[in-house]
């Protein structure tokens, strides 16, 4: 277990999540892709902390990433709920006009 191997695993998780975020149509599945990308970030940050600078302040960054995941999920589900209520859709393609 070295920093390189940890970062390679993190990169693999990030890339798989990116594939899901780009390819999936269902909003919940897109959120799963984003979660997987953040999963990779958690592992990378933990690796950086352990192998480069294991002082306590580095762990705070990990907590911030976890909070970002929580906020993303909470707001994402709320937006998905609002979208489903108003339009009865759960697919990104049917809500593409929101990007304009």
């Amino acid at each position: 277990m070295t920093l390189q191997t940890v970062l390679l695993v993190a990169a693999a998780l990030f890339s798989v999540g990116l594939y899901g975020a780009l390819s999936q149509q269902v909003v919940v599945m897109v959120m799963m892709g984003l979660e997987l990308m953040l999963n990779g970030l958690i592992l990378a940050a933990a690796g950086f902390w352990w192998f480069l600078a294991p002082d306590p302040s580095g762990q705070v960054l990990l907590l911030v990433i976890i909070v970002a995941m929580t906020v993303e999920m909470a707001v994402g589900f709320a937006v998905a709920t609002a979208l489903h209520r108003v339009r009865r859709v759960d697919m990104t393609d049917m809500a593409a006009d929101l990007s304009r």
Binding site: Q4, L7, L8, A11, A12, F14, S15, V16, L18, Y19, L22, S23, Q24, Q25, V26, M29, M91, D93
Partner: peptide
């Protein structure tokens, strides 16, 4: 339920190769 599967796969593989090269 996927769209543009081929491009998404290409982009994700390219990102992995880029990250792995940097690592």
């Amino acid at each position: 339920m996927v769209h543009d599967k081929r491009h998404a796969l290409a982009v994700s593989i390219a990102v992995f190769v880029l990250l792995a090269t940097g690592v």
